[in-house]
Design a protein around this nucleic acid. Structure first.
Lengths: 336, 336
DNA sequence: CTGTTAGCGCTTTCAG
DNA sequence: CTGAAAGCGCTAACAG
């Protein structure tokens, strides 16, 4: 079996440059890496030869010898989710600015895949960033132990650096907004029950309920997408609530669409609040009141943490970004 | 529970496995790669040792010796664009199914970045897939020459495999749909003027105009996002057209939002047509008539082409997927 | 069937 | 300041 052709074709190697410049391999390496202990004249010659030959050092060979790939892995549950897309975008651009590459992996919302991808991609990169991992806490703790360096987005584990959106405070702000508008019967369309994001929201609700005896917040099991929100329409109407708090914007939009098709006026009959502020939230009619999660910054900050680890910095404190309550047309005074 | 070996310094190497199994390095390599010329008993011993040590071969070292990284690069103009996200998702999942990894790079719509990223990522991968590159044709031709293997999405160059959405036919279908509804004055909100996607649409318009002497299609320079669409609102109203054809769904949604805010009824006063069928197109009100570009499939097909090249197959014919005209509520009969 | 021996392309001691 | 030589961790000829 003949060896497969070299992936990068008839690459010019450092030896070619050395030959053309009439120096040794080491000198080429030093010159091209800006090592100051090289005679300026020789360095010049080397650079000329490299340019003439259109030479660039093989990243793979460098990775092997340096033990550094100049690449980080990002594992997301679903590349189709607008929030993760924004995080990836912010992360990717920030990493690129530091001359780092990004390997993406989509776990398709599968916990098993998540585990496998994290360890597999870690081996070919310098670190991995887990975006909203779905793993249960104990498994996550065990996993990140073998991933060092790792950064978590929207989760935490031991002293692993993490950046997150403060779901709890943001939901509190939404609840206060509704309460201020006179709403006393509110439904919460819950996301994946055992998700961390959902737990944070439930905490906020419990706290709110404790502080507002005249308000009642009931929970309706739901999902995380349009269809789930639309399907919850009848239950929301039947509940008699004057306001609905959706797990995210997708759910809110599904609900909005379903109840309007059913003759319900928003916000006159029902106020609806989303979460995330995906790009389309402002284009529904009425535009969606929501909590704007700074996804791009979350991504950029995640990279900043990773870079820190790569440079040997201490993990540092978890960063928490507060989503901004963004009031638009889907909320209004409670009907009398 | 023993801690797994550190991902860091003290990596388990093939020598450790060889020592533990009491065989040579080559035997370990052969056994672990499923080489059938290994004594089953020995192979078993090797596998046990590997498992005990939690050993996995270093991908970087393998890449160097095999000349294959098991990774492909994908360069997109903007990770924030829903269409590219969908393409990336389809591509990433298809590649993962074949045990390949994906390195993403966001060129931020910059032609210069595009060129740099393509060559840079190519060096650390087995091939690159350029998604809707913005480079002018001659530069693209020059670039892909040094990228082999490469696959193009929505562009073509020589015999480089390419997959694309047939923008032209799809736009023709949209125009015919509007014409059939009685529209005779139509405006086209153009995207980036020198883009190939825009050129394809202009061709369709020219052809349509030639075949329908009683219809007039005028072009309004616009952009590619919400804001651009919204900003074009006044110009569209002023044009006196009864139907607007947007460069893409984002533009259509921006326009929809702007003209409605201005008291214009859609589709009674103005019909609006988008392009792409991004996930939210069906949730505007009224829902958007558009041409559904099969972005996930485009991504999956692009991977299929790349895999073919990697396996030494011939480039094959360019693949063209026809976007499906999807009629929803934003279009209706022309006002009388 | 198995071990020994060259490298893959590069960086980095270690001597001169 | 420069070159020779030793690997980084792995695979694949090439003998046994």
């Amino acid at each position: 079996m003949p060896r497969p052709p070299r992936a990068d074709g008839a690459r010019v190697t450092i030896a070619d440059v050395a030959a053309r410049a009439g120096v040794s391999l080491s000198t080429v390496s030093r010159a091209l890496n800006g090592n100051p202990t090289v005679d300026p004249a020789l360095a010049e010659k080397v650079r000329d030869a490299a340019t003439a030959l259109d030479y660039t050092a093989s990243p793979v060979a460098r990775s092997l010898v340096l033990g550094r790939t100049q690449t980080v892995a990002v594992v997301v549950p679903d590349l189709g989710n607008p929030t993760f897309q924004a995080i990836l975008r912010g992360l990717s651009r920030a990493a690129a600015a530091d001359d780092y590459h990004v390997l993406v992996a989509d776990s398709a919302e599968s916990v098993a895949e998540e585990r496998v991808l994290a360890t597999a991609t870690r081996r070919r990169t310098d670190g991995v960033i887990l975006c909203s991992p779905r793993l249960p806490q104990d498994e996550l703790d065990r996993l990140v132990g073998g991933l060092t360096p790792a950064v978590l987005i929207n989760r935490s584990s031991g002293d692993v650096p993490s950046v997150r959106a403060d779901y709890r405070s943001a939901l509190t702000a939404e609840l206060e907004h509704l309460y201020g508008q006179g709403h006393r019967r509110i439904v919460y369309l819950a996301g994946v029950a055992r998700s961390v994001a959902n737990a944070a929201r439930l905490e906020a609700i419990a706290e709110f309920a404790a502080g507002h005896a005249d308000a009642v917040v009931t929970e309706i099991p739901c999902g995380v997408d349009f269809e789930a929100g639309a399907a919850a329409g009848p239950a929301v109407r039947a509940s008699g609530a004057t306001a609905a708090l959706a797990f995210n914007d997708l759910v809110a939009m599904g609900l909005l669409s379903a109840v309007q098709a059913d003759g319900c006026r928003v916000p006159a009959d029902l106020s609806i609040v989303g979460f995330d502020d995906i790009p389309f939230a402002r284009y529904t009619s009425p535009p969606l009141t929501t909590a704007a999660v700074p996804a791009n910054e979350l991504g950029a900050e995640a990279w900043a943490r990773m870079r820190g680890l790569l440079e040997g910095a201490e993990p540092g404190h978890p960063l928490s970004l507060l989503p901004q309550l963004t009031v638009r047309g889907s909320t209004g005074p409670a009907p009398v």
